[in-house]
Amino acid sequence: MIELDDVKKAFNQGRPNEFWAIRGVSLRVDANRITVLKGPSGSGKTTLLSMIGCLSRPTSGRILLRSRILSGLPERFLTEIRRKTFGFIFQQFNLVKGLTVLENVMLPAYPLGLDHQPLKEAALKLLGQFNMESKADSKVEWLSGGEAQRTAICRALINDPEILIADEPTANLDTRLSREFMAIIRDLKQQGKTVIVTSHDPVVFEYAGIDTVVEMRDGNLAEA
């Protein structure tokens, strides 16, 4: 489904503080699988994930989504692909403070210009699936860590993306909540989603439902 071909990423290229975060990664991520990018802090997991999720472009190399080259597309097209194909769960959850849970969940759908009532119903249905319906009108800053993460998952799913991307999703959760999160991920896979997760948490990469674990070190795949 997703192919990476000798992907490299440099920050501050051409300056004295030039830094190569990804040094030539070739990888294939299959559809309807859970893939974990594992590795220590600074190994390049998040940088690679942001390129897969169209949040940034590689300095060199190619990224293909269903044989379509993403790496050369202009910003506008990347945004559209990001909106339709990917759902994001961030490490800090990145919910918008001051808005309610429901508003946060609906936020990625605003640029699509959908009718309000069906959109609201879809958001409430998602919240219901994650036992968050009662919190729909609560402000996100009042939520516990687990609730905030479930809200972030609902937000990631609102546009019904094929691929779910989660960056260090358990970094701010205790073991019980981390296991709960992994159970959710497994359910999503059963619903046909492709999930890519970065983590250095054993609860994640040792989880039974994981299909592929890719280990990274210093911007390269560890086995490479």
Binding site: T79, R83, V96, K97, L107, P108, Y110, P111
Partner: peptide, 19 residues
């Protein structure tokens, strides 16, 4: 910083620069 962060979130979840 809060507003800048918010703009970053909106862009990450699929809002265009023009939005």
């Amino acid at each position: 910083a809060e507003e800048k962060r918010e703009i970053g979130i909106l862009k990450a979840i699929g809002w265009e620069t023009s939005d």
